[in-house]
Every structure is written in structure tokens, then in C-alpha cells.
Design a protein around this nucleic acid. Structure first.
Length: 538
RNA sequence: GGGCCGUUAGCUCAGCUGGCAGAGCAGCAGACUCUUAAUCUGCGGGUCGAAGGUUCGAUCCCUUCACGGCUCACCA
């Protein structure tokens, strides 16, 4: 008898295994050691919503989520902040956006002041933010959002901007350490959006040493003097902005992509610049990019369709999306697959689940590791008892047998408990989507309708098919093996090759030469679906 | 030019803080009169990129080199 109940988390993290086995726990331990004991650990993530937020960006979010989970499991309090850098400049029109002309006229404006050309949201930035915000809770991610545009526009960072100006020589020096061309002597660590055009095509002329700054709009030639305490268009450039926020939020952990993490990259300069703001650089690690397999190959294909979280959730259950990321070390590249690999991923996940619940025996080391991956993959806590498992391949068949009617599929499953239905329904939807969108042609079928003209078959094959009728009428009396034998018997007594009969049967059932393993397939479909299809050959 | 990552079975990779080299797939053999990359059983398969060093012991740590990928030095 298998133990299919949830193990105690303390068993997994007990003294016996006080060495953490999972990367998230190792990083969490490092954060605690590096930053010292604190009441609350601040974990930060952030991106610029300058286009559809794709699955590559999601890696950053989920990495932080996994670390916050690990910190919490280590008994710590955590604040997970997510910064929408929506006061960044609109620099390039992505391929998948409508009304490119209008968007092009908005280049150099902050993305929060660019319209949503699809007409759904208040502005362009919001159009990219909101769909993701709506989806994140589904995968168990619930950060505290910070909208940088909103902050900058109400002069929230006036004090910090002044600090940057006061230390502009120091900041310039830090940045110059890694620049091929040094910044000019009169460089100012601010950029200004013109109040005449909203664009950042401006030149800062002077700073009065306190709160006033004067700039010229390059497009209109007009000059204006602003008060930092009330101005809405002044912001820090990225390499000053990022460390400023580390200091302001007292960030303990923030990962970054490899573009930021190279030597001379923005993390490198920021960990110097942050001193100016009286802070220290957070603990960090670098995560690698992710690739796409079985769908274009690039996250953002040239046709303009982007692989985003919604696109991945079409195919993968939320806990399996988490599993993909939790099961891969952040600094290694991996591919999100839409091809046959999908089946393998589901099978791997199910194996991981069985290991967690003790329904599959493995070595102690592997058990500890898989169990932790399983826990981190769950949107909430793992269920008390093991969820209903159904092999994904079989499910794909069931869905096609029932013409995509998921409620029928669920009804056909014996011993399905009420509390298991929600997850299973989700798996059904994903399987149906996969079959429809990505499965190879060989994999797809649909049962013929009795109303259609029955395929022409003749000779011994027809005789054999006819002789199967009594068997199908009594289908419930046969188990799979017996049915299989009956099929061979039918072929033999009619004097045809079993192969021919198989071929004929698939023609009758699904109008193809091949299909799912026949005996099992017929049993699964049941007498009611099969009999009418064979009736014409009586 | 700097940095980071990688190089392990035919393929894809695991091997996380040094202790007899692993998995899946492919291959081979056998079984099922069989079919969604069919299923089951068994088997073979490796100079752990190269050369040094540390160690009782190195795929693992250090140094150098080769090849491959990414990234920074503009902006964000």
C-alpha cells in the first residue's frame, strides 16, 4: 500500500537534510547570511512594459517568487515588490502592435503617455501591465506593484533626484569607469521630458544647486525652469534610477538578466552608485534567457506573435509552469516547448508528484530534491492527498473521443472525487488546446459520425468487420486482452491479415489508416459510440 | 577587448558544495498475432573538451589552452 499523503515539510527540511537541496533554498540561505537577520526581507523585481510582457520576462518574476517562497519556508517575513518601469522612454515600436504610425509619432515619450492603440486600456504601458497582473495570481505570484510613472509624475523622488545632482561628479566617475567614451564634464544625472512635447529630446542647461533645474526642448527650442519638488517630467536615467530604488526600498534581493549582469553592465555600476543614495547593493544572481521550441523558436517571432504567460498557460497547468522554472537552475538556459516535449514534461511532473506522495520509490537524494521541486511548483500548498493522475497521452485520446467535450471526459472517469475536479478540468483544457494547436497530425483524430457515409470496405475485411458486431454488442463482457484476441480471431476466420483488419477498423472509426491502440481504443469509446459505426457492415 | 556560461553515452541532459560515472530517448536482443515517438523484459554503450596542479582519491577545486554560446563597453 502506497502512502499517498502529503509528507510533512519538516521532514523534507529536517536536520537530516539541513543542507538545502534546491537552488531557491540555497539562495535564500545566502540572502539571510549576506544581509543579516532582518524583520522583513525585501525582494524586488521589475521590468519596463515597453511591449507585451513575454515568457522571458516572466522568468525574472517567477525567480523572485520562488526565492520569496524559500525565505518564507525558512520562517522569514518577506515583502515582494514588483516595479513597473513605466516612466521609461518609448524607444521602439514592437512588431505586434496595431496603428504603428501613431505609435511612431510617440517615440521618445514615456510609455505611460503613449496611447493604447488597441483601445482597451488607459495607455500603452497599462495595456502591457494589466494582462500580466491579471494572470499572475493563477501561478501563485502576488507581488506589491509599484508604478514608477505615477511616482515620478508626482515628484515622489524629488529628494533622491536632488541627491543625484549633488553627487553628479561621483556618479559620472563611477559610470566612466566602464564607458568607452567618458561622459562630458557638465553631464547631469537626470533626463527631462519636455512639457511642450512630452518627449525626452531635451537638454539640461543648468541646476541651481538646490531644487531648480532649467532645460531646453530641442524640438521647439523653448526653455523652461522646473522645481524638482513639483515637476512631473524629471527622472533619473537607468543607471542612477536602479540604485536609487535599491536604497529607497532597502532591497535585499533582486536578480537580473545577463545583459545587466556583465562586468560594466548596469548592476556593476549600480552597486557603486548606490552608495550615493546611502544604500547597499542587494544580493543578486543572473538568470539566463529562455528559448521556445515547437513554435517559431523565438519568444517574439517575426510574425509579431509573442510567447507570453497566457500562451504558456494555454498548454501547461499553472503548477507545471512553475515546475518548469522551479526545476531549472536560473543560470541555465532552457526551452519552453510546445511540441511533443509537452507530453514528456507532463509525465515528468506526474512522476515528481508520485515521488512527493511516496507513490513511487526512488533514492533518498532524489526524493528530497524532487519533493522540494514539487512543493515549490504548487500554486498554494500541496494537497493533503495526491491529486488524480491521468496520463496526458490517454487524456489527449479521451478528449478526442469525446470531441473535445471536457465534461463528458470527466464524467467518463471512475472514482473521481469532487476535490480533484478543478485541477483535472484545467489539465483537460490544456490537453485539448495542445491537441488542437500543436499536436502532430498523426496524433489527431475524431470519431466519425454515423450520419456520414460509411467507408467502402469489401471482401474478407468486411466479413471480419461484420463478425465483430456481436463482440461490440457485448463489449462490456470483454476486457482489453479478450477484445484484442477477438479481433485477431475475426481476422483469421475471415481469412484476412490482421493488419488489413486494423486498417479497416481505423477507417471505419476515424477515417484514417492508423490510430490509438485498437482494443483499448474501442473499450474506451464504449459500445454506444462504436456500434453505430459498425452497423452498416452487418 | 572585458565578463559570464557551457563542453559528460549516438541525441537531450542530470550529476549543487571531492568518494566505484547516471536518466530519458535512440540502438541491440527477446516477448505480446498490436498501432498515436506503441507496450513489457533484458543488454550494450563514456579518455567526463585538452594539458598541468592540489589531494590518499578529481567530472567536481586551482591554472592554462581549445572550441561553442551569450553579454557589456550606446540606451534602457
Amino acid at each position: 500500500m502506497h502512502i499517498t499523503r502529503r509528507p510533512d515539510i519538516l521532514t523534507i527540511m529536517s536536520k537530516k537534510h539541513d543542507q538545502p537541496v534546491h537552488w531557491a533554498d540555497i539562495h535564500a540561505q545566502n540572502i539571510i547570511r549576506r544581509r543579516g537577520e532582518k524583520d522583513v526581507y525585501v525582494c524586488a523585481s521589475g521590468i519596463t512594459p515597453s511591449g507585451t510582457v513575454h515568457i522571458g520576462n516572466f522568468r525574472e518574476i517567477i525567480s523572485v517568487e520562488l526565492i520569496t517562497r524559500a525565505l518564507k519556508d525558512a520562517g522569514k517575513s518577506v515583502r515582494f515588490i514588483y516595479s513597473w518601469d513605466d516612466y521609461d522612454v518609448f524607444r521602439k515600436v514592437p512588431k505586434n502592435m496595431p496603428d504603428r504610425k501613431l505609435l511612431e509619432s510617440c517615440l521618445r515619450k514615456p510609455i505611460t503617455l503613449v496611447p493604447d492603440t488597441a483601445g482597451t486600456y488607459e495607455n500603452y504601458a497599462r495595456a502591457n501591465e494589466k494582462p500580466l497582473e491579471d494572470l499572475l495570481p493563477e501561478v501563485g505570484v502576488n507581488p506589491e506593484y509599484i508604478y514608477q510613472a505615477e511616482r515620478y509624475r508626482r515628484s515622489f523622488y524629488a529628494r533622491q533626484i536632488r541627491t543625484a545632482l549633488e553627487h553628479r561628479d561621483q556618479i559620472r566617475e563611477y559610470l566612466n569607469e566602464h564607458r568607452s567614451e567618458p561622459l562630458p564634464e557638465d553631464w547631469m544625472p537626470v533626463s527631462v521630458f519636455s512639457s511642450f512635447t512630452d518627449k525626452d529630446t531635451t537638454e539640461v542647461l543648468s541646476w541651481d544647486g538646490a531644487w531648480e533645474i532649467t532645460y531646453r526642448c530641442l524640438e521647439t527650442g523653448q526653455q523652461e525652469t522646473l522645481d524638482l519638488g513639483t515637476a512631473s517630467g524629471v527622472k533619473l536615467p537607468w543607471r542612477a534610477d536602479w540604485p536609487m530604488r535599491w536604497a529607497y526600498e532597502e532591497v535585499d534581493f533582486e536578480p537580473a538578466g545577463k545583459d545587466h549582469h556583465s562586468q560594466g553592465g548596469s548592476f556593476d555600476t549600480s552597486k557603486r552608485v548606490v552608495e550615493v543614495f546611502g544604500g547597499t547593493a542587494p544580493y543578486s544572481f543572473q538568470y539566463d534567457f529562455i528559448r521556445i521550441k515547437g513554435r517559431g523558436g523565438k519568444i517574439s517571432s517575426s510574425s509579431g506573435d509573442v510567447v507570453d504567460l497566457a500562451g504558456v498557460l494555454e498548454i501547461y497547468q499553472p503548477e507545471i509552469v512553475r515546475y518548469l522554472f522551479a526545476g531549472t537552475k536560473p543560470n541555465s538556459e532552457f526551452a519552453v516547448s510546445f511540441d511533443l516535449d509537452v507530453l514528456k514534461i507532463y509525465e515528468d511532473y506526474d512522476t515528481c508528484e508520485r515521488i512527493y506522495y511516496g507513490a513511487q520509490e526512488v533514492g533518498e537524494k532524489r526524493r528530497a530534491k524532487e519533493s522540494r521541486i514539487y512543493e515549490l511548483s504548487q500554486v498554494d500548498r500541496p494537497a493533503q492527498e495526491m491529486p488524480y493522475q491521468i496520463p496526458i497521452r490517454h487524456l489527449c485520446n479521451l478528449i478526442q473521443i469525446h470531441s473535445g467535450d471536457i465534461e463528458q471526459v470527466m464524467a467518463s472517469l471512475p472514482a473521481l472525487r469532487e476535490d480533484q475536479k478543478e485541477k483535472l478540468r484545467r489539465r483537460c483544457i490544456c490537453a485539448a488546446n495542445w491537441v488542437r494547436l500543436y499536436a502532430p497530425e498523426d496524433f489527431r483524430f475524431s470519431l466519425r459520425s454515423p450520419a456520414e457515409t460509411a467507408p467502402e470496405i469489401s471482401g474478407p475485411v468486411r466479413t471480419a468487420a461484420a463478425s465483430l458486431l456481436p463482440v461490440i454488442e457485448q463489449l462490456d463482457a470483454y476486457d482489453e486482452k479478450q477484445l484484442s484476441e477477438a479481433i485477431y480471431e475475426a481476422a483469421h476466420s475471415a481469412g484476412c491479415e490482421p493488419k488489413e483488419l486494423f486498417l479497416g477498423c481505423y477507417q471505419v472509426l476515424i477515417g484514417k489508416d492508423r490510430g490509438p491502440r485498437l482494443a483499448n481504443f474501442i473499450k474506451t469509446c464504449g459500445r454506444e459510440k462504436i456500434l453505430p459505426l459498425f452497423e452498416p457492415y452487418r
